[in-house]
Design a binder for these strands. Sequence first.
DNA 1: ATGAATTCTGGACTCAGTCAAGTATTTGAT
DNA 2: ATCAAATACTTGACTGAGTCCAGAATTCAT
Lengths: 166, 166
Amino acid sequence: MHSDIDKLLRENGLQVTAQRLAIMRAVSSHPHATADELIDDVRGVIGSISRQAVYDTLSALAEKNLVRRIQPAGSAARYEDRVGDNHHHLICRGCGMTFDIDCALGEAPCLIADDDHAFEIDEAEVIYWGRCPSCQKAAPDDGKKAARSGPLQSSSKGKRAGPKQI
Amino acid sequence: MHSDIDKLLRENGLQVTAQRLAIMRAVSSHPHATADELIDDVRGVIGSISRQAVYDTLSALAEKNLVRRIQPAGSAARYEDRVGDNHHHLICRGCGMTFDIDCALGEAPCLIADDDHAFEIDEAEVIYWGRCPSCQKAAPDDGKKAARSGPLQSSSKGKRAGPKQI
DNA sequence: ATGAATTCTGGACTCAGTCAAGTATTTGAT
DNA sequence: ATCAAATACTTGACTGAGTCCAGAATTCAT
């Protein structure tokens, strides 16, 4: 049963260990999972693993481009194994649910900035923020951010204008 | 001296306090500063302020859209007072230097998700990652192949705060 | 001037992630 | 198959960014 992943690791100069195989499988079966979620998953399969091993492996894999790490504001880093294409993400402000979004421009797009300040740009990260259907129902018409520490929506009437235009 | 900002706060239903005025001034004079940098700056002006007050104020301001918060992967949240227009950011993987980038594509076709999964999208966040000229010189072309995710500044701090997962 | 509402302070606490050092595995060469 | 070097894993302490809480201090409408 050690073939695909096994080979992938070897080809990238990484040693093959039970932990790594389990981590890679976890990533591909739980796209957009956080490190903690992956730890839980792996423990369910392997029995036990240290948090450090997971972080180390994830970094190693990310460095070799076998997994992609995304770090949305307001949540821990998430990992996915869909690499090699430049796709983006759609994240719900309510529940954090994340979806992949194909780039509207095809191949390796979006890498063009008007004024690149002489930078050597290697990636354009795009995140669409919004509310998923069920969170819309749960708290219909409540701006971004959840109300802080108060009862759900109360006095504060401030309703910033519509969605900021893009 | 208390006119513009003062008024802005009042108009948004926020009480006017010395701390808030100082924080707003700090934000506008140090675009892209982190909360800690702002605290230092404000202390230099006001004398002293609690960390909590700064976080509270920043959140309140962000909520009223008087300030925009950006949370680039691998660094603490940064704040800027350029709001109301949709501009993006160019960040150096080496030193974290951040620049504003006007929307590159005009109407930005790239910012309209192909399949919106029935989300109510309110923002498209774009971050261009690369290396600034001086970091390019500092570590010129390391490992032609691997590239991406340079080792420098590996400190990635936890980031949460935004929408709480429910 | 007064008091209710809002804001500020300070300290404890949480979370995601990192550092360090010692132990265990993998792997290539014999 | 053996063995040592290279890599990987484990434990546990530690950090930085941000949050929670309760009491003290301000702000502002009357």
